[in-house]
């Protein structure tokens, strides 16, 4: 089953990408995530692996995931290596006014689980959709906060330069 949520962030794609590329940020903005650890290999980029867990219902579900697509400032996708089947994708697109549209796609399931799997996917969907929505809201808050700080720092530097 595939879920899809999007949001517009008042920051350029570069800033959003830098935030998403750093695995240490994920516990701060990913709703429901209880673990996001580097699991050997590169810390980020294509081939990076993470052990992640996401609380859904009565269980923490997840496993080992690997980054399988890495197009700077545009697309980052991961797929499960161990654990439940899952694929995730960050899709960043710059808007004409310089802001960024961020799309979060998440597909999940357990192959071969039959009717119970089909039912479980649908029962889990509302909770996961909530996680996706809150994740994007928290991402927006974090990135825009950083953007404001960066803008303020730039203004401060400019003021200091003109007053000299």
């Amino acid at each position: 089953m595939r879920l899809n949520e999007s949001i517009i962030i008042s920051a350029p794609p570069r800033r959003v990408w830098d935030y998403l590329a750093d695995p240490s940020n994920y516990l701060h903005f990913m709703s429901g995530v209880t673990r996001w650890e580097v699991a050997g290999g590169p810390r980020s980029g294509l081939g990076a692996r993470y052990r992640m867990l996401l609380r859904v219902g009565s269980a923490e579900v997840g496993g080992l995931i690997e980054i399988i697509e890495w197009k700077e400032e545009r697309d980052m996708a991961w797929s499960s290596v161990l654990g439940v089947d899952q694929r995730g994708r960050w899709r960043l697109r710059e808007l004409p006014d310089g802001r960024t549209r961020v799309e979060f796609r998440y597909a999940y399931g357990v192959a071969g689980s039959g009717i119970p799997g089909w039912v479980a996917e649908r029962f889990a969907a509302p909770q996961l959709k909530g996680h996706l929505r809150r994740t994007l809201q928290q991402l927006k808050r974090q990135v825009e906060h950083e953007q404001l700080r960066a803008d303020a720092a730039a203004r401060e530097r400019e003021r200091a330069a003109t007053s000299r």
Binding site: V56, V84, V110, P116, V119
Partner: peptide
């Protein structure tokens, strides 16, 4: 693994 969805439900 295939039984996990039922257990989870």
């Amino acid at each position: 693994r295939e039984q996990l969805p039922l257990l989870w439900l």
